[in-house]
Design a protein around this nucleic acid. Structure first.
Lengths: 226, 226
DNA sequence: ATCATGGTTCGATGGTAGTCGAAGCGTTGT
DNA sequence: ACAACGCTTCGACTACCATCGAACCATGAT
């Protein structure tokens, strides 16, 4: 009989297969409509609607009405972080997971985590930033150093502008496949944006995987090489 | 219809109030018997037994038989990390949480997270270690520097011995109350051990709270002051 | 041997939540 | 205005699962 935040209430929301599938789909970062999510979860539209209402009510998902469409998205990075953490144990204890299919391999290599890059490449990036002192943890929080600011600006990422936003700029997000941290926050989002707009990689249509082009891969490795 | 680890299966395990209470109790780090957990969860013994069987089966909890007792404990730090992450969103979205009672305040200040120190003090410790360069993140992982090794050894913590163990020594664990990282892993466990055996603080009987004695508090702050 | 204690299994019960078809409601386009 | 579309609400059905009392199994003590 202990108090503290009500774990079971939010865990139960994730505990239904249909809802879990929806949340997984939303981990892609793009907002989706109810019909898309129904398809993704493999349930009928009414069922999906009911689930989405619960997710909204529970605070895990936010909705934005646009015309006759309603776009659903994760409520925030903290929710994404929780999903990753749950994925971590699911991965660890999963008795199944027999053959790690090809798409699974791609997911391990690079994937979208809500709005930033995760997987081996995401971790490699984060490691590099820390190792080179481009990102430093001062007493208060993780932030780019002066050198880091230049590094990002060389990629056309305006650190100053990001700093203004109320959204946290840097955050460490634990990776379920590699079990190490990668860069989250608005800076992480900007990095992913850079990677895709420069054509270094493209999003897989049917999964969270991020597949690098050969040249994009080289460019990215070059970035971490010096 | 996406694959990936089966979120809902493990989330559903946490999604039942009785099981969630048990897991919360086990976050204290000490192994508990089935009867104790039944009491903690507010259910009858048969019910608790059934739940525990499911938790074991699901890989969230491990059991050790000792005579006619059976001691249950969390399966590992990764599970603890997940519980903290879920607590985080529960805390954030929780519409209730009206008055943060006195015990709640103590929990925010310092508490046990599985086997190490969490809460404001845990975060303060972690910040200090990073800020002073006692803990550094090299390319591979977080580890104490030479200076850090001396710092720990001054507290009678044998870093070398911990390094031998197969259990990861350093790990950053996200704090649900402060939303920043604190020290986990065997080194974190050793720190908590030091704090309690030196009489700086004692465990609250009925919660995860860690209450510092006046002198212990001073000693701890001294440790982070230089 | 006999009894007490800690724990699991069984069976029956009840509640709750997921599911879908059909109908209802806005919004958009023609 | 009317039709098409996206989505929600309603109602009914079903299935699962948490719950507990009672019986059952161990282990340890007398």
């Amino acid at each position: 009989m202990r108090e503290g935040p009500d774990l079971s209430r939010v865990a139960a929301l994730v505990g239904d297969p249909a809802r879990a599938n929806m949340l997984s789909a939303l981990m892609g970062g793009t907002a989706l409509t109810a019909s898309e999510l129904a398809l993704e979860a493999g349930v009928s539209l009414p069922t999906a609607s009911s689930h989405l209402a619960k997710l909204c009510d529970g605070g895990l998902v936010r909705v934005a009405a646009q015309g006759r469409h309603r776009y659903f998205a994760l409520a925030g990075t903290q929710v994404a972080l929780m999903i990753e953490a749950i994925s971590g144990v699911a991965e660890a204890v999963g008795p199944q997971r027999t053959r790690p299919g090809p798409r699974d391999k791609a997911m391990r290599e690079a994937r979208v985590c809500y709005d930033h890059l995760a997987g081996e490449r995401g971790v490699a990036l984060f490691d590099h930033l820390l190792a080179r002192g481009l990102l430093v943890e001062d007493a208060e929080r993780l932030a780019p150093s002066d050198a880091g600011r230049h590094w990002f600006e060389a990629l056309d990422i305006d650190v100053g502008a990001l700093r203004q936003a109320r959204r946290p700029m840097c955050r460490a997000c634990l990776d379920w496949s590699v079990r190490r941290s990668h860069l989250s926050g608005s800076l992480g989002a900007a990095m992913l944006d850079t990677i895709t707009t420069r054509g270094w990689a493209r999003r897989d249509k049917n999964s969270r995987a991020v597949v690098f082009t050969p040249t994009g891969r080289r460019a990215f490795e070059q970035l971490l090489a010096d």
